[in-house]
Design a protein around this nucleic acid. Structure first.
Length: 438
RNA sequence: GGCCCCUUCGUCUAGCCCGGUCUAGGACAUCAGAUUUUCGAUCUGAGAACAUGGGUUCAAAUCCCAUAGGGGUCACCA
């Protein structure tokens, strides 16, 4: 039975690199019908914190990476590690060493050649004599990473260790420990790193690195999962949008590449927009509400069916949940702001004033404020004025939305409603257009 | 610096293990055209890569070696 684990240390928020490691472990376990465990490596008492543990678990849950066992906390397993320390001490494979008044236990490193077959890179060989005796138990009584990792992987009967390739250099030490403890080593697969857009190691200066940040920016978990899955793995054919089920079915370590990948936000944005389109509108409404609230919208006061229609109007236009409000804010307020440059360019001319006047009058007389009737009405206006519809569209858009970019005019007006549309129109005529008073 | 890993379009990658089907495929991005009430979306099309140098072979992106470049790691951190 395959048994893998994700074993983060709670010294920081769950970041995309860790998320991908977790994802690959999870996919591997699900593909083989095995076990996926979560182990918290909190042996650094200074840097570990419960806040990070919570963040990591919340992040995994949000991504839909459910674990079968755990979380197991290393900080609660000191007796176990001590038992193994005693074994090594009594067999002479470990010894006490004191430096600067701190008494630790060190492992007596062998001096042979250590070799293992990495499932992703093939055989990797190390000269053990180049590795110095390393600490097993720190002066504070806690085990070090390499030691706790080996003890736990052995006790948990982990079959495959899938982790970042920054752990390659740790592997010979762990191999030596397995040998000294007469335990069978698991198989190893070292994943290449995820780099920032510029090819440097991913860090805060690259923008969002924490999973939580992507959640707050309005990325859908499925989209993020799909995107990071493809950073190092490919299904083998030309598919880009791969569902979880397909990933589980097709995921193998053989198909994981060995070269580091750069994080590409533009492609993530594209992928997120694809997932947004796939998501039912009712679901989007539900997901969007927290974002609207945070933006200051009184969500309780917004009619559900109206919001759903707005979502449908913008469904192919917003790339993230946060982006939705950025594009539709003028629907949620009474007053809107007009940028002077935009007003100057689109509203300040005799001809436009006349046109908008005409539009205001025509719209006032409408019984029904639906997109079909609106279209008929507006096209009638430009026809009577002998101008192209393009002449009217932009100024009118600016007048009722305050922007030069929006969804279709008729749909926009319908959703905005007669009252607000006319109010904004007359406000513009009064304020910006020289000739105008209604 | 020692040790280890990596190197296909700008980016993510397919192909590499099992040399010929590769005039190297796809996606994002870019550019052009179409459409159009703006932007976007959409459709069509274009440009764009086997790091370099040696081998091996009838034949190399695919195998071998060297060089260069990038990354990782050298803690009583994980």
């Amino acid at each position: 039975m395959v048994h893998v684990r994700f074993s983060p240390s709670p010294t920081g928020f769950l970041h995309v690199g860790g998320a991908r490691t977790a994802l690959y472990n999870w996919l591997f376990a699900r593909h083989h019908g095995g076990i996926f465990s979560l182990r918290i490596e909190d042996t650094d008492r200074q840097r570990s914190s419960e806040e990070f543990t919570k963040d990591i678990m919340a992040g995994l849950q949000w991504l839909g990476l459910d674990w079968d066992k755990g979380p197991i906390f290393q900080s609660q397993r000191l007796e176990t590690y001590n038992r193994y320390v005693e074994m090594l001490l009594s067999s002479g494979k470990a010894y006490y060493s004191e430096e600067e008044g701190k008494k630790a236990v060190r492992f007596k490193m062998s001096d042979d050649t250590l070799e293992f077959k990495d499932l992703i890179r093939g055989t990797i060989t190390f000269d053990a004599s180049l590795i110095e005796d390393f600490v097993l138990r720190k002066a504070d009584g806690f085990p070090t990473y390499n030691f706790a990792c080996v003890v736990d992987d052995a006790e948990m009967k982990i079959t495959h260790v899938i982790r970042g390739d920054d752990h390659i250099a740790n592997t010979p030490k762990q191999l030596a420990l397995y040998k000294a403890l007469e335990l069978e080593a698991p198989k190893f697969a070292h994943l290449p790193m995820i780099l920032g857009e510029d090819g440097a190691r991913l860090s805060k200066r690259h923008g969002a690195t924490a999973v939580k940040e992507y959640m707050e920016l309005g990325y859908l978990p499925d989209a993020l999962v799909n995107f990071i899955a493809l950073l190092g793995w490919a299904p083998g054919d030309d598919r880009e949008l791969v569902s979880r089920e397909e990933m589980i079915k097709d995921f193998t370590l053989e198909r994981v590449g060995s070269t580091s990948a750069r994080f590409n936000k533009t492609k993530l944005d594209w992928m997120n927009s694809q997932y947004i389109r796939q998501t039912p509108s009712e679901e989007l409404v539900r997901l969007l509400k927290p974002f609207l609230s945070r933006a200051g919208v009184n969500v309780e006061g917004v009619e559900e069916s109206w919001l759903k229609r707005l979502v449908e109007l913008y469904k192919e236009r917003f790339k993230t949940l946060q982006d939705f409000f950025l594009q539709t804010s003028f629907f949620f307020t009474e007053e809107i702001e007009y940028q002077p440059e935009v007003v100057d360019k689109h509203l300040k001319s005799e001809e436009i004033t006349g046109l908008l006047h005409e539009v205001h009058d025509a719209l006032s007389g409408l019984e029904e404020f639906k997109k079909e009737t609106l279209e008929g009405c507006l096209r009638g206006v430009v026809e009577r004025k002998h101008v192209g519809f393009g002449k009217l569209a932009q100024p009118l858009r600016v007048a009722i939305t305050g922007r030069t970019v929006s969804a279709g005019l008729f749909e926009t007006m319908e959703l905005l409603g007669k009252e607000r549309t006319l109010k904004r129109l007359s406000h513009c005529l009064h304020t910006f257009c020289r000739a105008g008073s209604i």
